[in-house]
């Protein structure tokens, strides 16, 4: 591959990758910052600076680490496995327009790589022997089980029309099969946003600001982590949030017909703006909504499933019948 490339293309590709790496490291910090800032402003506070997450990470990196005496290698490597997996996923998922191509972008591969992260998150939480972490991970597994059909079906319905399971093809801006389908894109995007709120344990499902161990989901799983371990997990989660919001922002942007014909740079800026815009909306939503009672959460997820089913219906009508 590299031999057949001219020097200019090689330099161009390298520059693209470097730019992509920079965006991948900056965006999670900014996304978290925007959500927190919005919530603070809605509560009438000034809030921490936009880059506070970065300062937190630096602080955590300098701290020493306390590990439960029960824990085994899974506990500490789990954090590394999750981050490595998430970084790999960020190169596979088309969460930003005109992203350089990763090793593959198969839809099912991506979904199952997310599942790999989840398995190790659950194992790490249970490894310390803490009952709180175990309850958190039990709830996390339940939510993931409920939300998986919805998120997969949303992506699959796009794949039905695009006639490919490669995410690069589905989200390609030169693929005419999906060019004028605002309804489908909108439904899929909304389904993915709702699914990612559940996956990330955000507001209507879990309150990230809560501090009662018995009701927490994601925070309970992090309860035993400290120092660098915690820093890795926090960054992984922020990156996951960026990638998932980015994916749904891409769907929403594609629902807008003009977006397809914008110049490349504008598309990239709009993608970044889309992620931050979604972060802003989530911040607003979290300020006005309350955490759902645990038994009501399946009802929330059922709405996500409904949107996916509608998307699948549209896709079948669009891609198979006509």
């Amino acid at each position: 591959m590299w031999q057949s490339m001219s020097t200019e293309t090689f330099l161009f590709e390298t520059a693209r990758w470097i730019l992509f790496a920079v965006i991948t490291f900056v965006m999670p910090i900014l996304t978290i910052g925007v959500v927190r800032k919005t919530r603070a402003r809605m509560q009438g506070r000034m809030g921490a600076p936009l880059l506070q997450a970065l300062f937190d990470l630096r602080k955590l990196m300098q701290k020493s680490e306390a590990v439960s005496s029960t824990a085994t290698w899974i506990f500490r490597s789990g954090a590394g496995i999750e981050l490595a997996n998430m970084l790999l996923l960020s190169t596979l998922v088309p969460w930003i327009a005109n992203k350089p191509d990763g090793v593959s972008s198969d839809l099912f591969l991506i979904v199952y790589l997310f599942a790999l992260s989840r398995l190790f998150a659950i194992l790490a939480a249970l490894d310390s022997g803490s009952p709180f972490g175990a309850f958190g991970s039990s709830r996390d597994a339940t939510l993931a089980m409920l939300v998986e059909p919805a998120s997969l079906l949303a992506l699959v319905s796009l794949a039905v029309v695009a006639k490919s399971t490669e995410m690069n093809v589905i989200f390609s801006l030169t693929n005419v099969l999906l060019a004028h389908d605002p309804g489908l894109w909108f439904l899929a995007g909304t389904a993915i946003v709702m699914a990612s709120l559940v996956e990330l344990s955000r507001m209507p499902v879990d309150d990230p600001a809560t501090h009662l161990e018995l009701t927490m989901i994601h925070e309970a799983m992090l309860l035993e982590s400290s120092g660098r371990n915690l820093a890795l997990r926090e960054f992984t989660r922020a990156l996951k949030m960026t990638v998932l919001f980015g994916l749904s922002a891409q769907c929403y942007l594609r629902a807008w017909d003009d977006f397809w014909h914008f110049p490349v740079v504008a598309q990239v800026w709009l993608s970044i703006g889309g992620i931050l815009g979604l972060a802003l909306l989530v911040g607003l939503f979290e300020s006005v909504s309350v955490k759902l009672q645990w038994r009501k959460v399946p009802e929330f997820i059922s709405y996500c499933m409904t949107l996916s089913l509608l998307a699948a219906m549209v896709a079948v009508a669009r891609g198979v019948v006509h």
């Binding site: 590990v67 439960s68 490597s77 590394g80 981050l83 490595a84 161990e213 371990n229």
Partner: peptide, 24 residues
């Protein structure tokens, strides 16, 4: 390779203390 990088650069150099779990 990503995992090896993270492990060698971040996790391995960290100082680890052993302790009991958090139980309120």
């Amino acid at each position: 390779s990503l995992f090896a990088l993270i492990y060698l650069l971040i996790l391995k150099p960290s100082k680890v203390r052993r302790g009991i779990i958090w139980e309120c």
